[in-house]
Amino acid sequence: MTADLLQALLFQGGYNAALVSLGAALLGLAAGAVGAFTTLRRRALTSDAMAHATLPGIGLAFLAMAAFGGDGRNLAGLLIGAGLTAALGLYWLQRLTDTTRLPEDAATGAILSTFYGAGIVILTVIQNLSLGRPAGLEGFLLGSTAGMLKSDAILIAAGGAVILALLLILRRALAMTAFDPGHARLMGINTRAADMALLLLTLACVLLGLRVVGLILIVALLITPALTARLWSDRIGVVALLAGGIGAFAGHLGASLSLVLPDLPTGPAIVLITFTAFLLSVLFAPGRGLIARALTRARQAALVRA
């Protein structure tokens, strides 16, 4: 098994396997880097609502594609459906927070549960309609690289590259909007547009992550690398790069592991790898890590005594 894993890690596990783990790595890179901005803009849980709101779209897209005689499992088609309902969820979230007195977190949870509930209703409809073979949509809940097509992996890798390119262009406007939106507006930045762009980039990461990580846990790939990287640097550019690196590492390792161990759900594996990186950083990061802070305190105490 170790040899197989090593092969997968070094992209030697066959062409398809190499594409899958490359796709997962690029996804992790994009999600980690975008997530650094999403988290700093305090939109972490918005992305969770967004992810859950993709489920009805996945189900409806499957039904639509199957009804027109196509392959209900075409990834691009499913992602279009997912994107549409996620956008609808975002629209309602915005309406709830703009036009009612509900606090943002309550509105977020309400959208998350309502859309997710609708998705589950649609999934039970799909399960009950006899459409020949099982739909296999459960893989979108917790992610699965098993049975991933070459075209799926290419779609994910290409999407990740596009997201990274856009992020590179927008980084300055996004950073200023996240740090001090009032000042950013005075400097001529359209902060509404910047926020919208960030939400769309986040949504793109969520959509690409559905197949590999799954909609329940994709939010972890946006938040956890960002918080981990924050422990290592005080500069937003470095934080975004580091978060991307952590995401890429976790995506690659997790996908490779699940290629070797087909029963292992990919999403939870990737999430636990990032969480391990987070815990290690909480302990060992220089400056902000718990150990470093304890040492500093001890040194200061010694100075006071001396």
Binding site: T39, R42, A44, L45, D48, D105, L142, I216, L217, V219, A220, I223, T224, A226, L227, D263, L264, P265, G267, P268, A269, V271, L272, F275, F278
Partner: peptide, 21 residues
């Protein structure tokens, strides 16, 4: 929000892994 997101995704992932393995 972010602290919650990190925690519940990790714990849920752990639960799924324990269950499956």
């Amino acid at each position: 929000g972010a602290a919650m997101g990190v925690t519940f995704t990790a714990m849920f992932a752990l639960g799924v892994l324990l269950l499956e393995t």
